[in-house]
Design a protein around this nucleic acid. Structure first.
Lengths: 362, 362
DNA sequence: TTGTATGCGTTATCAG
DNA sequence: CTGATAACGCATACAA
């Protein structure tokens, strides 16, 4: 068995020319059925696999989409990727995934590698640290469609998909207010990310709308479990009165806050009510009380981003000569929804507890 | 700005030949420093990115490793992939990830695509449903190194990395026995997977070793949350006495079991003790009580699999002529460790609870 | 209906 | 030190 079976091998075996084999393999109408059958038979026998590298070089398109995400271990990004693959595979595209681990250098290296491998498009969710955008320009300068999702980039003119970060946050805080919270804290993400600024704005506006006083000391940067625990610890230790509600920038923060509150003897939801963001049910339904959260459609986000790529590609192919025709970027906004669970509502918490302690009798 | 900048463009700009440019770019000793500087300057100006597709075709190696996993949303596989990337990138390899979604057809398609894109190696964790192995043979027939990890394939002669599935299971059950359990159930995975058979064997042997009676009705197939809930439900409803311990094939099953037990008014760990497998701390430390589990070094598994690939590659390159020299497959076994938490020990559960309810008074 | 020639971008070989 | 040439595997314009 040869290590590398090529079109030539099939051609030799049948005493025909490589071009005929090439055409036969892709069912070209010019080729006789007899030849096609013979070619396919030999191809199967030799376990021929077309060399995509050669095909890509020849056609100067790789049929590949590059995806850049911070970390795969985040359930959110893993779900987005599933959505991307869903659409991409159906459209005949392969997906190459790159992780940045929140490191800008890694982001640049990855994007450079994607350009080198001549991907047909790039779908990207930025690092927390990204403040310089030349690598994104580099993509666009080559006329490669670039789509941002979730962690989008305001400084680059590119299509993007986000969720209703502002609205979701607004409604989450509104919900806390409806539950009777007066002194509401926000555990926010890094200021560099638009999504966290949007969520912060939603918080501000909901507070203002209800004429609640905004205490800047209650707006605390905390975007993982550990920093959330520390934030709670500091709040409890401080002279100031405790908040009675916390809107967290993501579910992990909500988890950390809840764990720490519990360890420090503070009851959720009675004393402090909590709402997260994302609604990763592998977490939010696991705790006691369960965690209220703003649901984000991750899978759908991946699908939409990929569809936007396909649209953009079509647009570019429609004008093959014109390079870099500018366009006002389209921002697709996906719906969020506040899911109320025990962490923000005593009655619901009671119900959860009741359900948990319900001894079935047939 | 050109869409595609090539070596020729640089050559033209400097009035030198493409081959000189090629050599200058890779710092070939024959080329004068002056030329190198000039070339690099223009390359930077034009934002030249070497075409990896052309390079791959030319050198008939893609510097790419293909990775095939069931699902990215499983924290375990996401961690393994991080380990793979860690070693791969350092060795100058890119990583292409494919998801099968537990679908054999998808597995075959993905592997076919990887062969077509001429990956230099394949790291694979099989589907639950894989019972036919021609696609793996197809890889090996091309002399492409194939390494299995976690869900390995006994029927194919290939290097592989696993954890101490048998020992981990044995110790988990032994631990339950030490906690006083007499009637221990096992929620097992699909029989098609070697890992789940190994874990089952560990269960069997630990039970026999302690002269405990094995009730086949207590060995139940359940490998996700929902099936675990159903299994618990059925056990509670049955005429038979409840088990007092359950060894679960993974953490998700442990979570499902615990939730259902709680809802049905059965106390963990007092009435039923539980141990999971994997120790995904994003779960196991979240519940009340926390979940005891057999720790699996996922990141390390990825690292080792990649190192095995590199070794195998070296071996094959040392004998470039001989194709398919057979070799007794090497199976690397990584250490597991039982992590005891509240779900399997009342004292620990007390401590967790105490810690949770401890009102600090510093 | 099939064959021939050419080129995609790069690099190794050989020549100068 | 540099240049010309061929080849990697495939697809297509053109020829027959």
């Amino acid at each position: 068995m040869k290590t590398q079976v090529t079109i030539k091998d099939i051609a030799k075996a049948l005493n025909i020319s490589p071009s005929t084999v090439s055409r036969a393999l892709k069912d070209h109408p010019d080729i006789s059925q007899k030849t096609k059958d013979a070619v396919n038979k030999i191809a199967a026998e030799l376990d021929y696999h077309p060399n995509t590298i050669a095909q890509s070089l020849r056609k100067s398109r790789s049929n590949t989409i590059g995806v850049v995400v911070p970390e795969l271990v985040h359930h959110f990004f893993a779900s987005v990727i599933s959505g991307i693959e869903d659409i991409a595979y159906k459209a005949g595209y392969r997906v190459v995934i790159c992780q940045t681990n929140e490191d800008v250098t890694r982001e640049k290296i990855n994007i450079s590698a994607l350009i080198s491998s001549r991907v047909d498009g790039v779908l990207c969710s930025m690092t927390k640290e990204t403040k310089e955008y030349s690598h994104f320009k580099s993509i666009q300068n080559r006329n490669i469609p670039l789509i941002f999702f979730d962690r989008i980039c305001n400084e680059i003119k590119a299509d993007s998909v986000v969720v209703q970060d502002y609205e979701g946050a607004y409604e989450a805080v509104e919900h806390l207010i409806e539950q009777g919270c007066k002194r509401i804290a926000h555990f926010k993400g890094p200021d560099s990310l638009l999504i966290t600024r949007q969520r912060l704005n939603g918080y501000y506006d909901a507070m203002r709308e209800s004429h609640l006083q905004i205490d800047e000391d209650l707006i605390i940067q905390a975007d993982d479990r550990e920093s959330a625990r520390k934030a709670i610890y500091d709040l409890v230790k401080s002279e100031e009165p405790m908040p009675d509600g916390i809107f967290c920038v993501n579910d992990n923060v909500a988890v950390g806050a809840m764990m720490q509150l519990r360890e420090m003897g503070i009851n959720v939801p009675r004393e402090v009510k909590i709402v997260g963001f994302e609604d990763d049910t592998t977490f939010t339904r696991l705790t006691d009380p369960q965690i209220s959260s703003v649901f984000q459609p991750a899978f759908e986000m991946g699908q939409r981003a990929t569809e936007m790529f396909l649209d953009e590609l079509k647009r570019k192919e429609a004008h093959p000569e014109k390079i870099l025709e500018p366009k006002t970027p389209r921002i697709e906004v996906l719906k969020t929804k506040v899911v109320v669970r025990g962490s923000s509502n005593e009655q619901v918490a009671q119900q959860e507890r009741a359900r948990r302690n319900y001894l079935e009798n047939v």
